[in-house]
Design a protein around this nucleic acid. Structure first.
Length: 186
DNA sequence: ATTTTCAAT
């Protein structure tokens, strides 16, 4: 991914009107995990521009996961870094996928909480109930994505240019998320 | 004083 695209979209201080999703897959063998680089990448939602039907990032990702045909006899961990947390509908779709794919374990790190649509809290709780670890991205995850999903070309060692208040915002969002996930109402 | 949310004007 382009540097500026990453910084613009994953900043936890802004409100971009699009969503990027980075993903990677590990094969779990006993206590070991083996990265499967062939299933690593990123995507973004489709807008209504250019006549395309709009689609959130998650359905696109679900389609991609299904196309991998991961071996049902094996066990995988899929890690997702997404700039906006899943909306209620997408959360339901993810839960449905996880119910049908017990060999897949999902972790989601979100840069920001998408709290625009009603029922977003219940959606996030449903994901957690389905066994997904849902957490906010912290410096560690931002830096990890910077190193693993951003193109650096000549500057291989270019360090992650963190922004002011990254940690403050991340901590605040983490508190909000924990409150949402602990709440029993649905 | 401080919006913005997977666009559309």
């Amino acid at each position: 991914m382009d540097k500026q695209t990453f910084l613009d979209n994953f900043s936890n201080l802004d409100y971009p009107r699009k969503t990027y999703l980075c993903y990677e897959v590990e094969l779990l063998v006993g206590e070991n995990s083996i990265p499967l680089d062939e299933y690593k990448g990123f995507l973004h939602n489709k807008g209504a521009d250019m006549g395309l039907e709009r689609c959130h990032a998650e359905p696109i990702f679900l389609e991609r996961m299904a196309s991998w045909n991961l071996d049902t006899e094996l066990h995988y961990r899929i890690t997702v870094f997404i700039s906006w947390s899943p909306c209620p509908d997408c959360a339901d779709e993810l839960v449905k996928f996880l119910r049908e794919n017990r060999h897949v374990n999902l972790r989601i790190f979100a840069a920001r909480i998408y709290d625009y649509l009603q029922g977003y809290e219940a959606g996030l709780r449903a994901l957690k109930a389905a066994g997904t670890d849902v957490a906010m991205m912290t410096f560690q995850e931002f830096e990890y994505c910077w190193k693993n999903f951003v193109d650096h070309q000549q500057d291989e060692d270019e360090s992650f240019p963190l922004w002011d208040n990254l940690d403050v915002e991340s901590e605040e969002l983490t508190k909000n998320l924990e409150g949402i996930l602990q709440n029993q109402e649905d």
